[in-house]
């Protein structure tokens, strides 16, 4: 397992065990107390999907869902995640199948260099979660822009990203309506 810095025994009292759930699986991970959640995910669990971009909370490339809410893992201490649920981009697809967002991002060319993509996907996934919970979901461009307001992309100009999220959101709404209509309904 790659470790960013040697775990110096002299600093042993500054190493703690963090118990948390990542993508549905329970872990107990030893980490230095000054490590961020992003460092724990990347260097102790090998989950390198979440990216270390600006590393100070500006760019959103490190966005994960912490107890369901988009959170910047580069400025969250690993110990702050004690007892909580973390979802990373690695947990988006199920059983080898890409998540609808991932499929739409790929089909619509919503990534160029791809560095911002994991963060974009996690912020979008939360937007889709909220949309799926709404009593009468409506997909609005300004809501998508607001949901992605904390994620910077230096390549695409955002147009393709918004289109991909919009398409996945439309799918979510269609599914919600089909469910509301019940089996054998108009959908």
């Amino acid at each position: 397992m790659p470790i960013a810095e040697p775990l110096d025994p002299a600093r042993a009292r500054r190493i703690a065990v963090v118990r948390l759930h990542v993508n549905g699986q329970a872990y107990a991970v030893a980490a230095p107390t000054h490590w961020t959640l992003l460092e724990l995910l990347r260097y102790q669990l090998g989950l390198v999907g979440s990216k270390q971009g600006c590393d100070k909370g500006d760019c959103g490339a490190c966005t994960v869902l912490l107890d369901g809410l988009p959170t910047l893992s580069c400025i969250t201490l690993a110990l702050s995640a004690e007892g909580r649920h973390v979802e990373t981009v690695e947990g988006l697809g199920v059983g080898g199948e890409p998540h609808p967002l991932q499929r739409q991002f790929a089909e619509r060319g919503a990534a160029q260099c791809g560095f911002c993509t994991p963060g974009m996907l996690m912020s979008s996934a939360h937007y889709l979660d909220e949309l799926g919970r709404a009593a009468s979901p409506v997909v609005r461009q300004q809501d998508i822009a607001a949901a992605l307001g904390g994620n910077l992309c230096r390549c695409t100009g955002y147009t393709k990203i918004f289109e991909a999220v919009q398409a996945a959101a439309d799918e979510t709404c269609d599914r919600a309506r089909a469910l509301a209509d019940g089996p054998g309904g108009a959908a």
């Binding site: 909370g57 959103g60 966005t63 912490l66 809410l69 988009p70 959170t71 910047l72 400025i75 969250t76 912020s123 607001a146 949901a147 307001g149 904390g150 994620n151």
Partner: peptide
């Protein structure tokens, strides 16, 4: 204030 992620934190 700031971004959705930062307002969550």
């Amino acid at each position: 204030v700031a971004s959705p992620q930062i307002r969550n934190m």
